[in-house]
Design a protein around this nucleic acid. Sequence first.
DNA 1: TATGAATGAGGATTCATTCAT
DNA 2: TATGAATGAATCCTCATTCAT
Lengths: 226, 226, 226, 226
Amino acid sequence: MSRDQKKAESRRRILDAARAVFFRDGFMRANLDEMAEKAGVAKGTLYRYFESKADLYVAVLTNNHEIFHEQMSTAGGQGESALERIRSIAKFYFAHWLEHPDYFQIFWAVDNESVIGDLPRDVIEKVADFWEMNLNVTHAALADGVKTGEFVECDTWEIAHILWSVADSLIESDNTKARRQIRRRPLEPLYTHAVDTIIRGILVDPSRVALAPPSEPRKSTLIPVK
Amino acid sequence: MSRDQKKAESRRRILDAARAVFFRDGFMRANLDEMAEKAGVAKGTLYRYFESKADLYVAVLTNNHEIFHEQMSTAGGQGESALERIRSIAKFYFAHWLEHPDYFQIFWAVDNESVIGDLPRDVIEKVADFWEMNLNVTHAALADGVKTGEFVECDTWEIAHILWSVADSLIESDNTKARRQIRRRPLEPLYTHAVDTIIRGILVDPSRVALAPPSEPRKSTLIPVK
Amino acid sequence: MSRDQKKAESRRRILDAARAVFFRDGFMRANLDEMAEKAGVAKGTLYRYFESKADLYVAVLTNNHEIFHEQMSTAGGQGESALERIRSIAKFYFAHWLEHPDYFQIFWAVDNESVIGDLPRDVIEKVADFWEMNLNVTHAALADGVKTGEFVECDTWEIAHILWSVADSLIESDNTKARRQIRRRPLEPLYTHAVDTIIRGILVDPSRVALAPPSEPRKSTLIPVK
Amino acid sequence: MSRDQKKAESRRRILDAARAVFFRDGFMRANLDEMAEKAGVAKGTLYRYFESKADLYVAVLTNNHEIFHEQMSTAGGQGESALERIRSIAKFYFAHWLEHPDYFQIFWAVDNESVIGDLPRDVIEKVADFWEMNLNVTHAALADGVKTGEFVECDTWEIAHILWSVADSLIESDNTKARRQIRRRPLEPLYTHAVDTIIRGILVDPSRVALAPPSEPRKSTLIPVK
DNA sequence: TATGAATGAGGATTCATTCAT
DNA sequence: TATGAATGAATCCTCATTCAT
């Protein structure tokens, strides 16, 4: 392996280790020693690649950003009808999440991590940008649907917001379950239902979408005390 | 003031100080020194009232719990129709949040705080319980609406989940804006719209709810680089 | 021993330990672990008394400052003639140095320590102030001597500067010898001679001061290679 | 360029870079990374030319030594009278200092650098040797002056020491001002005055030397608090 | 010979918790 | 009961030095 390859490999290994640890422990608790060990490098080596803990965090956070950005836009253009395009967006989103769950987790973490004050400006912007784009792509599909008469006149920005809120919340809840090692259910069908339900409210022809049938009586998710 | 009153007073002052600091800094960054100073007691005194930092956190988290619990149930019963009851729940929820924003903040914090592993089991359960109850109250209203023919047959648990996701997301986003000192818009009307939109999808008579008109073209919230 | 006494005692022990270590190793190399151990306290305890390493350094540096300041002024006023007053200053200076050699060492260290950029502004000012005062006191005596006709007209500031340069240099050289564990000679007579020699050049009546007789042929101080 | 030339060139570039950095930061803080970059070589290359940081320091310190040594001796021999020779020494010294201020700086640094314990024996000796020589050259001129009846009988070693103390102190003070970015005055005239004043005290015919006239009332050099 | 990636010991600082008064 | 001084484990970061390429 060439020197450059090795370098790239090291960088990747560090990022992988860092992602795992940041994912599990959050920025504050995450321990550089552990990352180094997981990455199979010395602690000092981390600092050859990243200037500081925060810088490494940024790198982890923004790692897939561009790829995601591009694919998301593509997804927004696929589908015969506006409804289909919105479903396509949802589908892509959850597929991507399935493949890179921690990447997402970390995006959320930023919002909620109390450390935010210490995070460099550009992370916060990346995340804001991430949401901005999601909203824009979704809104474009909704507005298009209104224009073509597929949807009734409505506040398309608000609908977009609602759709993302639900996606956000589902994933967040799944993450929480993961952390707590609770059994999780597949999210995609859940979200597909949710999307359909919400969109149904603005469809000119609601019959295009079938509502989900009543689900099983929900069991408590209360974690029993050990 | 009697000795017992003094003790109660101390306890309250500590809780108040702790809530403020935990709210602002999160569990990890929160500093017991500052809490003690804010509460006007010595640091050691904290340990006469609470066993540990985590224990104090628990106390803060669960402080208003019972009150909230009770009021929420009441709200779920108020209203002529199922639609009204759901609106009443939303209304109460946001009113309570307006009054005790940090109490809520802290609930969310738990979900997102990466420290969760260290939090005592019963905090996690309290929070889960909190959600459980929210869902149950909402679900009860929805199921009732289905039974009385106000709503179409649908997955009422899922709808409940969607409704809470959106509420959750709105508040979370407001918190984020608060932290970043971005101008915020009143949440209640936003959520009322959202509730109406969502419920509209399952109303037997959708005309009962007017959709919001198209809103202003949304301005970017991207934070400009300084 | 009362709590306050203990505290004062701790503070003193820390300062003593810190002075010793800073004296021996300089700011950069000085090790807080060692200071703590020498002081018989835990490392964290240092931070109860001083905010940082630099702060502790400042404390050490400025510890005796006021006392010295006052005594120096007193010394400048003692003596029948200007010549006597200048001798009195020199005498006091070296006496003080004998008693608190590391205090002086540290003052010099500041000038030469390459860390200066990192030292807080007030240390630098304290040291500048220290020199300022030395010069002023000496200059006052010289100017007085000129006025009373004891000294010829001359640049009294320059003479003051020369006198302090020599004192400075003698002590510095003694410190160096101390560090290198070379045998040292008593400084006071050396400096008394030097003062006399220098003053002799401006005395209206040079015969008042006897020059030192030729000294032993000086032996090399070259340190033999081991 | 031949291979040997290249090597010499590299060595020189490294020494230049090292001198600049050591001069600015002192031994401890000086950073090999920066030196390598300034020299335009890789970090590892430093180790092909010098065994260690300390070794590089030694090389820097002793770089001009021989040249200086020789020129100093020459200067000591120039002048009609002993007085003139002493003035010649002073003149050369300050001229050399003007041209190679960092070379001097570094010599002083050794004395004061608290790292001295770690410096190899031979640096310390080089520096001691440097002073030894200065003293010897000066003493020779003084002793000669005594022999020829130009100076009165006196402790010529002590006078030599005084003369060097003052030179030392003037340069040191100039360095300090440079570091603190305070306006500096030309040193040579200052030292010439000082030499004259000191020598005047041992001149058989003091009228050969005019004392400096009273200077401007000295302004405080206290650095005002920002 | 030159490179520069990797190393890892070392050191300052924080802060929850303890306990003598 | 309340205090607050003392503790010391935990952790990020620096940088001289090594060595495979």
